[in-house]
């Protein structure tokens, strides 16, 4: 059951990724990377259940925290007007 849901979430992610790679603006791509933050956490906790590996919950905790750092770095430091947005 948990592995099935994890597979569904991964399929979701890959679909979003392929679709976003065609988009013109970097912000769209970054939002997909942030989608990986929340969905990746979901996949990891589901895998922890399915594989009987409780240590993966720790990985999920780390991921939840560090996805925010990348997002903030993007918004505060990297996203300039010259980077081909609308």
């Amino acid at each position: 059951m948990s592995l099935g849901i994890a597979l569904f979430l991964l399929a979701n992610l890959v679909a979003a990724l392929v679709a976003a790679a065609r988009r013109p603006t970097p912000a769209d791509l970054m939002l997909t990377a942030l989608l990986f933050g929340s969905t990746g956490v979901g996949v990891l906790v589901l895998l922890a259940r399915a594989m009987q590996l409780p240590a993966l919950v720790d990985v999920a905790l780390t991921l939840a925290l560090l996805a925010a750092i990348t997002g903030i770095a993007f918004a505060r430091r990297a996203w300039h007007a010259g980077s081909r947005d609308e």
Partner: peptide
């Protein structure tokens, strides 16, 4: 940004390989 996404996918791959 693709590199970041690649890193996240790689995290999942290591998790699947039972290497938390």
């Amino acid at each position: 940004i693709h590199f970041i996404v690649f890193g996240l996918l790689l995290t999942l791959a290591w998790a699947r390989l039972a290497a938390p």
